[in-house]
């Protein structure tokens, strides 16, 4: 089956720092070359802590940021954002901060109408019908359409954000921390809504979050990002139950949950390497309990560590030494 989305060697480097003389410019590799594919109807979770490059990845996927290297294929065809009419039907984006993603001086209706008018040249009746349709799909009352963004709570605004993403009938939606700004009791509402919409419209999701419990609850497969690289990839239930990369293990053990004991041993300071002077070897080496000489010398490649899992580690768990 042709993947809904395939990315090959996608990477992003930002220029950093200003030298006394402009010429000497350092680069910060926000995202190392990444290759992933997502099947139609699948939810790929992407989890990582701050500075792991997850938002950079999301913004490249929807064409808000130009990749430094690599290609994005949608249903086997190169993704081209120059014609938004086509690209907006392929992939849509739901923002992290629901209120800030709405223009404070426009009513919700004005915001919702713009893409329909600009991209598809729909007349007023058609626009109205389509907007009512998506509003019903996300369980919002139509009278909300004539209000301004500041009148909404975070959960409502996020529903509006989701409705906007649905307008163009996309096949793929990139969800960038869609619930991290919401309270727990509202978070579940939005996650369930996303699941319903997916079933109803046959959507494919890229679900990006720092919260692995949330990612696990919604994803089929999960990619774990650390310092701009995928360190582990595999089925959601396996990846946290049987992590093979030490970072994934640490992440899984750190998640606070009722009834779970605190991590007693205090590992090395949980700091990321300096992005201006990245380490030669594995970025996690300084924090890793299993670190050896080779980890400091060469960066491990992503390779199979089980039937369905891949990890970028010289000493993965699971291959023989099940911990």
């Amino acid at each position: 089956m042709t993947p809904a989305l395939q990315i090959d060697g996608l990477s992003k480097a930002f220029p950093a720092g200003r030298g006394l003389f402009r010429a000497a410019r350092a680069q910060v590799q926000a995202l190392h070359p990444i290759s992933l594919s997502v099947q139609p109807g699948e939810t790929l979770g992407i989890v990582g802590e701050s500075g792991c490059g997850k938002t950079t990845l999301a913004r490249m996927l929807v064409g808000l940021l130009k990749p430094s290297t690599g290609t994005i294929l949608i249903e086997g065809k190169p993704f081209d954002t120059r014609d938004r009419r086509i690209s907006s039907q392929q992939i849509q984006y739901v923002f992290q901060d629901p209120i800030s993603s709405l223009n404070p001086r426009k009513t919700i209706r004005q915001t919702m109408e713009t893409p329909l008018r600009v991209l598809f040249g729909m007349d007023q009746a058609a626009r109205r019908a389509r907007i009512d349709e998506v509003f019903e799909a996300v369980n919002l009352r139509p009278e909300f359409l004539d209000r301004y963004p500041h009148e909404f709570s975070g959960g409502q605004a996020q529903r509006i954000g989701i409705a906007r993403a649905l307008l163009a009938r996309p096949k793929i939606i990139v969800l960038d921390e869609p619930v991290s700004a919401l309270d727990v009791s509202v978070q579940a509402q939005v996650l369930n809504l996303l699941a319903d919409l997916k079933a109803e419209y046959g959507l494919t999701y890229l679900f990006i979050s720092h919260d692995l419990a949330v990612v696990e609850a919604v994803s089929d497969r999960v990619a774990v990002l650390y310092f701009g690289a995928v360190v582990e990839l595999g089925p959601a239930e396996a990846i946290f139950a049987r992590p093979t990369h030490p970072y994934t293990r640490l992440l899984a053990q750190s998640a606070p949950a009722p009834g779970r004991p605190l991590l007693r041993r205090d590992p090395a300071p949980a700091e990321l390497p300096d992005p201006l002077h990245p380490p030669l070897g594995c970025a996690f080496a300084a924090r890793c309990p299993k670190v050896t000489q080779i980890c400091r010398q060469s960066a491990p490649a992503l390779r199979a560590t089980g039937e369905t899992q891949l990890a970028a580690c010289h000493h993965p768990d699971g291959l023989g030494d099940q911990a």
Partner: peptide, 15 residues
Amino acid sequence: SLPAPGAGKRRLVSI
């Protein structure tokens, strides 16, 4: 409604 880790993909209880 808390998505507890280790429980796999599922529908959450919501308020």
